[in-house]
Amino acid sequence: MRALVIDDSRAMRRIVGSILKDFGFEVREAGDGQQALDALQEGKAEGWVPDLCCIDWNMPVMDGLQFVVAVRANPELRQVTLMMVTTESETGQIVKALAAGAHEYLIKPFTADALRDKLALLGLLPEEVSA
């Protein structure tokens, strides 16, 4: 499994990334939506397509919602699962992100167990850790 962790906080990238690595993910990072689109482009050239993107909402240059819209507009990335991982937690915003094409939404702060539960919901956990 491959994941792209998109957050302008490197502390948060490290936290999310290390939990995902524990579940066997190969993790790449990006600091904003534009960097993430670039990383997807570069990855494509070498055959690296993520199974999952964990996406912060508020970031410089391109925010997480714009990134979701951009990914959803690209048919080549249809199989990529998009999960918002953000402190934004107004109901209206969750609805907006889901309508734009995000599959799940994890609110900060969260525990490693909460991230694992979301991966289980998304069918992205290897069998041996899903029990």
Partner: peptide, 20 residues
């Protein structure tokens, strides 16, 4: 709590069945 709804509740169900 926020931490409780984060534990494996699908986001679609959260917004459909809960209010803040």
């Amino acid at each position: 709590s926020q931490l409780e709804v984060n534990r494996g509740l699908p986001a679609t169900m959260l917004v459909r069945h809960f209010t803040r």
